[in-house]
Design a protein around this nucleic acid. Structure first.
Lengths: 335, 335
DNA sequence: CGAATGTGTGCATAGCTATTCACTCGCCAT
DNA sequence: ATGGCGAGTGAATAGCTATGCACACATTCG
C-alpha cells in the first residue's frame, strides 16, 4: 500500500496505550517493575498494532547479537546435515539464532568476514575441512570466538573440537586384524582434511603396532565417486586387499557398490569394510556398514560450551571419543 | 583482557585519522564524494584498528536487514540439503545472509515469529511440509513476505513455488503403463504434505485416464523406513503390484532394498520403481532409480524473484516443471 | 504525625552509521 | 572584479530500545 510503511515501534504502542515508551519496554521485559494493569493495557495495544520489539537497538548497545555463524563448505555429505541439525537444536534451546554461511572451499575471507563482523555475530563455528588462517586471524582481531570442527587451526580466539580420529584409526586396524584381515587397504579422504590425515596416521600406526605391513592406499575424497574410484584402483591390481578402512561412510558406500557390481565381491565374505561417520544410510540393506559414530550431539555440546568462553588467551582443543558400531560389513567377533 | 571491550567505531577511526566521522562513513561508501587522499588516510587508520562498519544502524533506519530466514523441519532428507545449498548460493550471490531456523514440525509460531520479526528479516522461506496458518498470518501482519516450497498455504504476503506434482503423477502412470506395468502401487508420503497429496492425485488421475484400476497403496512417510514398511505391506498380499510410484526417492530406496532382501525381487525385472527428487543417491549401483528431478536451481531462482515482490495484494503461486530422469529401475523404452 | 520504605512512572540518554544541510575554498567565465 | 560552480568537509540528526535517575504517591512503622 503506502510506499514507506514502517513496523510499529514502542513509541507507537505507548501512544496507543496512553503510557510512556519506557512503560512499553518494561511490559516486554520479564521481571521489570510495572503494574499489572499497565502491562495489560500495553499488551492489548501491542497486540492490536502487531508490535514486536526490535532487537537491533539492544544489539547495538551490547554488541551481543545472539547470532552464531555456522560456516560450511557444502551439504553434499549427510554428515554435515547431522551436524547442522544438532547445532540448530542446541542453538534454539539456548535462545540463539544460526546464520548459515556457505563458502566455496578456499576464499572465505573476502566478503564473509566483513559481513559477520558487521552483523556482530557472537561467534563462528566452522565445519570447514580447512579454514583460512587469514580469515581466522581477522576474526580474532575482532575478538570473535571461533570453534572449529575436526580441524587443526590454532590461535588466540580459536577453540577446536575433534573426534579422536587417530585412536579410531588404530581401533580400525585392530578390529580388521582381529576379524581375520590379512591384506589391508586405506581409502583416503581429501589430503587437506586434518581428520583424514589423523585417521590414516592412526590406521598406519595401528598396523605397525601389530607388526603388519603398511596398507595399500587409494582415493582422495569424501564422496561416493571417490570411493568407487578407489575400489577400482585397489582391486585392479593383482594383490587385492581383504580389509579396508575408509576415511568416511560415503566413500565406503562407493567401495562396496563397485566391489559387488564390478568385481562380484561382497562384504564381509571377500572383503571387510569399515567406514567413518555412521550415517543413517549405514544401516541400509546393501551396506550394513561397520562404522565409527562421531556422536554429533557430544560434539555440539562441547562446541556450545566453548562458544561462550570469554578469555581468548589459552587455545582450547577438545576431543570427543567416537564409538565403533559393528554391523555386517565386518565379520562377527566372539561375544 | 579488559572486561568491557568494544569494537572500534567509525568515530574511533575518525579520531585516529584526524577527520570527521562522516568522512569515515564516506570512505566506506562506494561512490561517495571524498578526496582520494582522505580515503587513503581513513583506510590506513581503519586497517590499523581493525575497523569493520557496523551494519546494525543502517538496518535500524531502513528496516532492511539483508537477512532471509529459511525455515526447515529437519535435515534427514538430502533433498533439503540440495535446496539449502542452492539457496545459500543464490543468497550469497545477491549479497544477502541466510538465517536458518529449524522447527519441530508444528509449533513454529511460539518464539520463532517474534525472533524473526525482532531481527527484521527481509523475508521468510519455508521448506516446511506444512506451515502454520497462524504463524503465516502473524508474519503477514508484519508485512514480511513468505515464500513457501511445495505447500498450499495462501494469504496476502504469501507466495508459493511448487513442482508440478500432479503432472508428474500423471507422467509416472503413463511411463509405468507404457513400459508394461499391469498392477500398480503407490508408496505414499505423509498425509499432511501437499506435494504427497498432489503426486498421489496425479498418479490416480493418470491411471484412470488410461482406463486402469486404481493403485494399491501403502506407506505414509518420506523416509527410508516408511518405504521399507510399505514394500512389506504391499508384497505380503497375494496380489502383488509390478509397477510402483513412490512419493519420494528415500522411500523408493527402502522399497527396493526390501524387495531384494526380503522377497528376492529386483527392479525392473520383477517390479518397476519410480521415485521423486532425483537425489544424488539415485545413481548409486543398488538403485539406479528412475526419478523426477525437481530442478532445485529453478525452484530457488523463482523463489528469489518472489522474495522481492513488494506488493502483497495478489497471491502468487508459481509452478516449476519437473524432469523425468530414466534409469534402470524402469524398463527401456524404444528410442 | 513524621519519616522511611516501596511501588510505579516518565524523562533523558547511549549506542553507531548514513545522509542531509550548510559551509569553505579554489577556479572559471563574464 | 564578481558571481557561479563544483569539490570536499564537518555538524547535526534519525532510527528504536533498555536503563539509570528522579519524582510522585501510597503504605507502614516508630
Amino acid at each position: 500500500m503506502s510506499g514507506n510503511w514502517r513496523p510499529p515501534s514502542s513509541t507507537d504502542v505507548a501512544r496507543a496505550a496512553g503510557v510512556s515508551q519506557s512503560a512499553v519496554s518494561r511490559a516486554f521485559t520479564p521481571g521489570a517493575r510495572i503494574a499489572e494493569a499497565t502491562r495489560a493495557r500495553v499488551m492489548a495495544a501491542a497486540e492490536a498494532l502487531g508490535y514486536r520489539p526490535n532487537l537491533l537497538p539492544k544489539i547495538l548497545q551490547t554488541n551481543r547479537s545472539g547470532i552464531v555463524a555456522v560456516v560450511v563448505g557444502g551439504f553434499y555429505n549427510p554428515y554435515f546435515a547431522m551436524t547442522l541439525e544438532a547445532f540448530s537444536r542446541a542453538l534454539t534451546a539456548a535462545g540463539r539464532q544460526m546464520m548459515l554461511v556457505r563458502v566455496d572451499s578456499d576464499r572465505i575471507l573476502d566478503g564473509v568476514v566483513d559481513q559477520l563482523a558487521g552483523y556482530r555475530v557472537d561467534a563462528v563455528v566452522s565445519a570447514l575441512a580447512l579454514t583460512s588462517q587469514d580469515a581466522a586471524g581477522q576474526l580474532s582481531k575482532l575478538r570473535i570466538p571461533i570453534v572449529t570442527l575436526n580441524s587443526d587451526l590454532a590461535g588466540d580466539w580459536i577453540r577446536s573440537v575433534s573426534s579422536d580420529n587417530f585412536a579410531a584409526g588404530v581401533a580400525a586396524a585392530r578390529l580388521l586384524r582381529e576379524r581375520g584381515g590379512t591384506r589391508f587397504g586405506f581409502v583416503a579422504g581429501p589430503a587437506d582434511s586434518p581428520a583424514q590425515v589423523a585417521r590414516e596416521a592412526g590406521f598406519a600406526h595401528g598396523l605397525a603396532e601389530l607388526g603388519l605391513p603398511p596398507a595399500m592406499r587409494a582415493g582422495g575424497g569424501y564422496d561416493y565417486a571417490s570411493g568407487a574410484r578407489a575400489a577400482r584402483d585397489l582391486f585392479s591390481s593383482s594383490d587385492r586387499p581383504d580389509a579396508l578402512f575408509c576415511a568416511n561412510d560415503l566413500a565406503a558406500f562407493g567401495v562396496i557398490d563397485v566391489l559387488r557390481e564390478d568385481f562380484g565381491l561382497t562384504a564381509p565374505g571377500d572383503v571387510q569394510v569399515v567406514g567413518f561417520d555412521n550415517l543413517d544410510m549405514a544401516v541400509w540393506a546393501p551396506y550394513r556398514l561397520t562404522s565409527f559414530d562421531q556422536d554429533v550431539d557430544a560434539h555440539v555440546a562441547v562446541a556450545m560450551e566453548l562458544l561462550d568462553l570469554e578469555a581468548g588467551a589459552t587455545c582450547v582443543a577438545r576431543t570427543v571419543p567416537s564409538r565403533l558400531v559393528e554391523r555386517e560389513s565386518t565379520r562377527k567377533g566372539r561375544r
